[in-house]
Amino acid sequence: MDLSLLRTFVTVYRAGSFTRAAALLGLSQPAVTSQIRALERHLGRTLFLRQARGVTPTAVGDELAHRAAPHLDALVEIAETGPYGRVGARTLHLAGPPEIVSLRALPALTTLVSEGLTLRTAVFTASEESLDGLAAGHHDLVVSTARPRGGPLTATPLCDEEHVLVAAPRWAARLAQDTPHEGSTILNRLPVIEVHESLPFVARYWSAVFESKPAVSAAVVVPDLRAVLESAVSGAGLAVLPRYLCEGALESGCLVALLEPPVPPLRTYFLAVRVGTLALPHIARAQETLLRAAIEW
């Protein structure tokens, strides 16, 4: 069997589309289609079901990908770094939300960079966008708040993030008479700072703590939680922030936790990879390093 057919098959499997696979391989879409058909004829089995948007692997396709992908990746590793190449002698493409990538993932990977790993990052506020890029082969590891299920991706829980309702002390003083159940009162009395018009952090907090939906608009919208933090410290209004991000401001008194619910709202992060790519030493080492570091997060 021509190994190039298997390489094309694995690329289509991971990309979920002949068109995306063609772009990754530097081939035309008809050439990719022809190679997949040739492999299917050789095996006598159908590997993909053609859909309106992309392709879905059959059970045979899933089995072949899980068996072939690690070996193909290992051959690529040898071809690019030599049989005795260092673990760090490759480029790792990491993607995820800007805050956790900047403040958690990158510092944890510093030791690998010192060993020779080349690191490239991309930040996305929407997990779907980063996971689509992972499936298409644009990234090697993705930190995501969504857990992919099935298909070309697999994920491992990375860490839980506690969310805290915070505001500057002068705003907290105005709420001294409110009780923990007066969520609507809090929102009506304070401006809201958020990362999006849909109030994703406030809405999640209100659903978990008050079992209701916020019925207000944001006074400040900025798509970076670090900017939300600075806006809250400056007194622009209330915000819902990860505790790790605002811990310093809470300890210094620049921010005050408006509530301390018995069960604080949590959000889980996952570390996602393409099936089979952990056979590549530099990706496996980076995943292991992040999972180990996340124990302290």
Results as ranks from 00 to 15, higher is better:
His181Leu: 13
Leu3Asp: 14
Val275Tyr: 02
Val87Gly: 03
Gly61Asp: 07
Ala208Arg: 12
Arg104Lys: 08
Ala74Ser: 11
Gly137Arg: 05
Ala155Arg: 08
Arg189Thr: 12
Ile193Asn: 05
Pro242Gln: 05
Ser207Cys: 08
Pro281Lys: 03
His93Cys: 10
Asp132Tyr: 04
Trp297His: 13
Ser127Phe: 02
Arg67Val: 11
Pro281Ser: 06
Trp297Ala: 13
Leu134His: 01
Thr110Val: 12
Gly116Tyr: 10
Ser198Lys: 07
Leu245Lys: 03
Glu128His: 12
Thr277Gln: 09
Ser207Arg: 14
Pro57Val: 06
Leu175Arg: 11
Val192Lys: 03
Leu49Phe: 06
Ala136His: 08
Arg120Glu: 15
Tyr205His: 03
Ser212Pro: 00
Pro223Leu: 04
Leu119Ser: 03
Gly151Leu: 06
Pro191Val: 03
Thr268Asp: 02
Tyr244Leu: 10
Ala89Gly: 15
Leu175Phe: 11
Gly54Pro: 03
Cys254Trp: 08
Leu75Asn: 02
Leu112Thr: 07
Gly116Lys: 03
Arg243Thr: 02
Val192Met: 03
Leu24Ala: 15
Val221Tyr: 01
Thr111Gly: 02
Leu271Ile: 11
Thr58Met: 07
Ala136Arg: 12
Gly26Tyr: 01
Ala65Cys: 01
Ala108Pro: 04
Ala227His: 14
Ala257Cys: 06
Val113Arg: 14
Ala15Val: 00
Glu194Ile: 08
Glu99Lys: 01
Gly150Pro: 01
Leu103Lys: 08
Pro214Tyr: 12
Val209Cys: 05
Glu247Ile: 02
Val209Pro: 02
Ala294Lys: 00
Thr91Glu: 13
